[in-house]
């Protein structure tokens, strides 16, 4: 298989959501064919630049997945299967990227705020951002504003992502923004917020930098922030 074919095959399998050869894909009949981990290993063996694998195979394919999700062609498990592929590929690629001196796009502290135990959305965002090249510091669920601010300070993270799924806990996001101001950190860190009950309006009210409807919007927002 030449380089182009291999990169396309990795992308195809990310879109299909197949980590291992035995995995089923979105489409029927793919079981038994080489999948993401095997193909990524093969690409490295052929000496393909790991950075190119990330750009040509992973990023590209997750954009397709995002579009499919937007159109309701893909549902949550489909997206999770693809995100799992990106996670698996990044686990293999990360040491090579580091060795090659490829810098991370920056540290990203992520948490579900106190009182809230929902972690599915947060985890999807974390995997996707990891795939997009960010260094994720995942604080978990039910995290107090103090701990979030502490982590931003300690890691000097330029980004923080907050998740809440409840109308009662989304208010905590505002507390985080206030605390960042109090600590004099607000200018150094971009605050991204997400979760089912949120809106652009709400994000503005609490002084966040961006409301992200889903993981794909988070990536887009970060891109425009970096630009």
């Amino acid at each position: 298989m030449d380089k182009q074919e291999l990169l396309e095959k990795i992308a195809f399998n990310v879109v299909q959501g197949r980590v291992e050869a035995e995995d089923e894909g979105f489409d029927p009949g793919l079981e038994g064919q080489p999948a993401v981990t095997e193909l990524v290993e093969q690409a490295l063996e052929q000496g393909i630049d790991p950075k190119e694998i990330v750009l040509a195979s992973l990023t590209e394919s997750m954009e397709q997945v995002g579009e499919k999700f937007e159109r309701n062609e893909y549902l949550i498990p489909d997206m999770l299967a693809s995100a799992e592929c990106v996670g698996a590929a990044m686990d293999i690629l990360s040491p090579h990227l580091m060795k090659a001196g490829v810098e991370s796009k920056g540290k990203f502290v992520i948490a579900t705020v106190s009182g809230d135990l929902h972690d599915i959305g947060k985890n999807i965002v974390a995997i996707m951002l990891k795939g997009a090249g960010y260094n994720i510091i995942d604080l978990g669920t039910d995290v107090s504003p103090e701990r979030i601010v502490q982590a931003v300070k300690e890691h000097q993270a330029p980004y923080v992502g907050l998740s809440a799924l409840l109308t009662t806990t989304m208010r905590v996001m505002g507390e985080v923004v206030s605390k960042l101001k109090e600590e004099g950190l607000r200018d150094q860190v971009k605050v991204l917020v997400g979760g089912a009950p949120l809106s652009d309006q709400f994000a503005k009210e609490i002084g966040a930098d961006a409301y992200c409807k889903d993981a794909f919007h988070a990536i887009d927002s970060l891109k425009s922030m970096a630009a």
């Binding site: 089923e24 498990p77 299967a81």
Partner: peptide, 12 residues
């Protein structure tokens, strides 16, 4: 049924 693949293929 990993990631609900078979279920979704049957009923989506």
């Amino acid at each position: 049924d990993r990631h609900c693949r078979k279920y979704m293929r049957a009923f989506r």
